[in-house]
Write a protein that binds this DNA or RNA. Structure first.
Length: 878
RNA sequence: GCGGGCGUGGCGGAAUCGGUAGACGCAACGGACUUAAAAUCCGUUUCUCCUUGGAGAGUGGGGGUUCAAGUCCCCCCGCCCGCACCA
């Protein structure tokens, strides 16, 4: 028999699907829908194994749901704006658009070679003017609805490249490209009011039951809700004449107010800035703090430092106490009010600070059963619950009650005519800054007019299109220095005005693309009827690296779109799944250079296993297994794999063995194993097809089901229906590795049946026909080309992709007999195959009758026999 | 530091409700076919002990609950991930 030829077959079936429009989403909105989406790729130029894994999973779900009668939407597009295109433009003198669209063409061809069930009619790239003009239109709606505002904000400024850098582009305080020392600059930037939904974005997480708990938790932490008190300490000005009469701060430990021994504010706090203006040594202190790098490590190592401003703050509950006010490096401007009170006894940071500056450490919470008079704080703050002490009216209370009482007292006290404190909820989440000073992004559609200020572009004038004639030979934003692009007239007064030269953060583009797929050619952002039908996305699949920002921004965007009437729901993604990474061994030459798997040959196995260099000699060290990455050169090119083994093999391997949420290790042996299985299926189907042809009519409709089945035929039927039932369940829960195991089992059963096939046995042909059909249909979503080829070879009607999912015959899942274990004192001694009809007493008798059981009991007395029907018998003897 | 996850054969991993631990795959070993090899097919494969047949141990370690624990509870160890001066 000829071997399966994937090269010829895969292209042929891809053409058939395309010509028949098999995967075009239907427009019949009365049918039940299912929206499967995988995170769309950045068009870097090549797909990688992570894409193969991601898109294979989505494809299995899409094809399975399609067979189950759903109108399936399974689209693909390109997250096409962003820095790499500009970098390429600078390095290779290619226009970002040209570079991007060429990459898209290359990657589209690669994706098509995978045989994915995508509706390519809906494809778009976020850099298409048709897409970003709708984004601009929606921005104008958000602006009108008050969901967008402008304010000054700090950015990392690279003085050499004349550009703004993202935090991750700042390495050790220097620009990643230029190496120049990065400056902090204040620019006026656009912000989306994501904090308007802080609480809703948090509480709605509870309803996202089909999301991984891990992702929900990460979002919860990111939003960072904490309940506390916003309060003021009155300032006693000792001659420095500051403008403020009080300092406002946020605390969650107002119970410990009596333990306060200082106040501290951030170096960026307005009051710090004001004081520094007339205090050069404070200015120097602030500059020193700034110089400490921005990396996490630097911050972690940085010692706590403070500068005593000389100001004093009056204790809210004890007018005889005055606390020193410091400017301190460990206080964050971005959280709360940028100022704190320090209670060293019950906060580790405050304790470190207090020890350094010899400030009081007054314990006000004391562990139960400990005498307050003898309780002392060493080098560790006491942060647990206990009994209040040294705290006037709070003494003797527990922490929770003390918080209540302290908050109430602050609320009843006035300072400057307002309550001195107020219970509030504080969030870590901050508004989303979307301005980027770059060319390759969606222009923010506003103009700046000297007379009218910031004016939105009229919708009929959209899109504000990017100019093509730009140069990247100079640093800075090409839009900024373009000869004519900026010049326009004010939509309100008609006077000469200037375009906004900032473009959107690319996270904006990906925050609504899933909605655009519902009506990708609409002349409005989204067609309401289409989104009402298709949204939410039923199953979204992507990498854990987008667990926070992309998903949170999309959730925000959906709410903003609801408020502006574009959609009718809050949550875009009903089901979310984060798949694991694809890893590979690493190889290193003697001189330390990384080697790619293609340059290495593996010899020996087990302890003898070692690597040799293909080109000449030289030791090669086999290194650890790492995520595939260019830097370690341990990548495998999907195109090579598809060329050598076929798309089906690659897809099968990606689904086998490893649970989809965990990392998978790509190995040569694994791919070969996958390929062998594919060939084995082809042989089994070939054998079966020959037998079925001999039997005459290749098709065996239901009504031809024989009255009688020989045991082997019945067993095969049962195996097929059991596999079908379990596989369906596994795919529904995205447990692809288990679904794969079910297919192996069925293939094994079928192989055994064929090995002793006798066409004269009652029901043999029918059972074979049925089992082959089920096997091929089960394989279909995973190895679709092989599935089609087998379907045709068996002489079945139509094409596999059009078939309905087979029904499970429940009666075949029920066995008359069941095998149960028999234990004596919890140890398994034997097993018993019995009729399901037996009563517990009969089962007990049968178990006690076993010779092995009698032996295990020996001369002990049977005290009790536990019978769990259809599961186990346990004889307790003593 | 805080939060979360995980720990099962040589390896990847099954075990959905507390009820036969190791499904399925990889690798290995033995056999068949072959002049030979590859491919394929059949079989064996948790460990230890003894003679077929058994016996004992076994899910990171220790304790507990239970007739019964990979699964539930407590303590400890190790690895991985996320967040990180969040007041």
């Amino acid at each position: 028999m000829e071997r399966y030829n994937h090269r010829e077959t895969e292209i042929r079936w891809q053409k058939v699907w395309e010509e028949r429009g098999t995967f075009a989403a239907g427009e019949d909105y009365s049918k039940p829908k299912y929206y499967v989406l995988e995170m769309f790729p950045y068009p870097s130029g090549r797909i990688h194994m992570g894409h193969v894994r991601n898109y294979t999973m989505g494809d299995v779900v899409a094809r399975y749901k399609m067979a189950n009668g759903f109108n399936v939407l399974h689209p693909m597009g390109w997250d096409a704006f962003g820095m790499p295109a500009e970098n390429a433009a600078m390095e290779n003198k290619v226009h970002p658009a040209h570079w991007t669209y060429e990459n898209i063409d290359a990657m589209r061809a690669q994706l098509k070679s995978m045989g994915l069930s995508l509706d390519w009619n809906r494809e778009f790239a976020t850099c298409d003017p048709e897409y970003y003009s709708q984004q601009q239109s929606m921005f104008l709606d958000f602006l009108k609805a008050g969901l967008v505002y402008r304010r000054k904000s700090k950015v990392n400024w690279d003085p050499v490249d004349q550009t703004v850098l993202a935090n991750e582009q700042v390495i050790d305080g220097r620009g990643w490209r230029s190496g120049a020392l990065v400056e902090q600059r204040e620019l006026t930037q656009w912000f989306f009011k994501i904090t308007a939904w802080s609480d809703d974005l948090l509480t709605a997480l509870d309803g996202l039951e089909k999301w991984p708990e891990k992702v929900r938790l990460m979002q919860r932490n990111w939003i960072g809700r904490s309940e506390g008190v916003r309060m003021s300490f009155e300032l006693i000005d000792q001659g420095s004449h500051v403008s403020a009469s009080a300092i406002e701060l946020f605390t969650t430990r107002h119970d410990t107010l009596f333990g306060a021994s200082f106040c501290a504010m951030s170096i960026d706090h307005p009051l710090s800035q004001e004081l520094a203006a007339s205090d050069p040594s404070l200015q120097e202190f602030i500059d020193d703090c700034r110089r400490v790098g921005t990396s996490e490590e630097d911050i972690e190592k940085a010692e706590k430092k403070g500068y005593d401003t000389g100001l004093k703050a009056l204790h809210p509950f004890d007018k005889n106490r005055q606390l020193p006010v410091y400017v301190a490096n460990f206080v964050l401007m971005d959280y709360g009010t940028g100022a704190i009170f320090g209670c060293p006894a019950h906060d580790q940071r405050d304790l470190d600070f207090a020890r350094k500056y010899k400030l009081d450490v007054i314990p006000v919470v004391v562990p139960r059963d400990v005498d307050p008079a003898t309780f002392e704080i060493g080098n560790e703050a006491f942060v647990e619950d206990g009994v209040m002490a040294n705290s006037d009216f709070l003494n003797g209370l527990d922490v929770e009650t003390a918080k209540d009482k302290a908050a109430a007292a602050l609320e009843n006290q006035t300072l400057d005519g307002k309550p001195q404190g107020e219970r509030t909820v504080n969030y870590r989440l901050r508004d989303w800054g979307v301005s980027r000073q770059r060319y390759w992004g969606c222009p923010i559609p506003v103009v700046h007019c000297d007379a009218c200020g910031v004016v939105p572009v009229r919708k009929e004038d959209l899109p504000v299109a990017l100019p093509d004639d730009v140069s990247f030979d100079k640093p800075g934003n090409p839009l900024e220095r373009h000869a004519t692009w900026k010049a326009t007239s004010c939509p309100e007064c008609g006077a000469a005005a200037q375009r906004e030269t900032d473009t959107f953060d690319t996270f904006v583009d990906s925050s609504w693309y899933f909605a655009r797929f519902c009506s990708p050619r609409a002349t409005v952002p989204v067609d309401r009827e289409a989104v009402d039908y298709w949204l939410p996305v039923d199953q979204y699949i992507g990498g854990i690296e987008h667990a926070i920002l992309h998903l949170l921004y999309s959730r925000f965007f959906t709410r903003a779109m609801r408020e502006t009437g574009h959609v009718g729901l809050d949550e875009p993604f009903e089901g979310m799944f984060t798949q694991g990474m694809v890893n590979h061994e690493t190889y290193r030459a003697a001189e330390g250079a990384w080697l790619s798997p293609a340059e290495v040959r593996i010899v020996g196995e087990g302890g003898e296993r070692r690597a040799e260099r293909l080109s000449g000699d030289g030791e090669v060290a086999i290194g650890s297994i790492e995520k595939m990455s260019k830097s370690r050169r341990n990548t495998i090119d999907p195109t090579d794999i598809i060329e050598t083994y076929g798309a089906d093999t690659a897809r099968w391997f990606m689904l086998s063995d490893s649970p989809p949420e965990r990392d998978v290790i790509w190995t040569e042996a694994g791919v070969e194993g996958a390929h062998r299985f594919l060939q084995r299926i082809w042989r089994l189907v070939g054998d079966a097809a020959a037998h079925l042809a001999d039997a005459g009519d290749g098709t065996a409709p239901e009504e031809f089901a024989p009255e009688e089945f020989a045991p082997a035929a019945l067993a095969l039927r049962k195996a097929a229906h059991r596999a079908l039932s379990e596989l369906g369940n596994d795919v529904e829960h995205l447990r692809f590795n288990r679904a794969v195991a079910r297919i192996y089992e069925l293939a094994n059963e079928l192989g055994a049946f064929l090995g002793s096939y006798d066409s004269n046995t009652p029901g043999a042909a029918f059972a074979l026909h049925e089992a082959c059909g089920i096997l091929v249909q089960c394989i279909g979503p995973m190895m679709p080309h092989l599935g089609e080829e087998c379907w045709a070879r068996l002489g079945f009607d139509g094409i596999l992709a059009d078939q309905s999912w087979p029904g499970v015959d429940e009666t075949l899942l029920l066995e008359d007999t069941v095998t149960i274990a028999v234990q004596v004192n919890g140890k398994r001694r034997d097993e018993l195959t019995i009729s399901r009809q037996l009563t517990n007493a009969e089962v007990e008798a049968a178990a006690l009758d076993l010779e092995s059981v009698a032996r295990a009991i020996g001369d002990k007395q049977v005290r009790k026999v536990i019978v769990v029907p259809e599961r186990i018998v346990n004889v307790v003897a003593a």
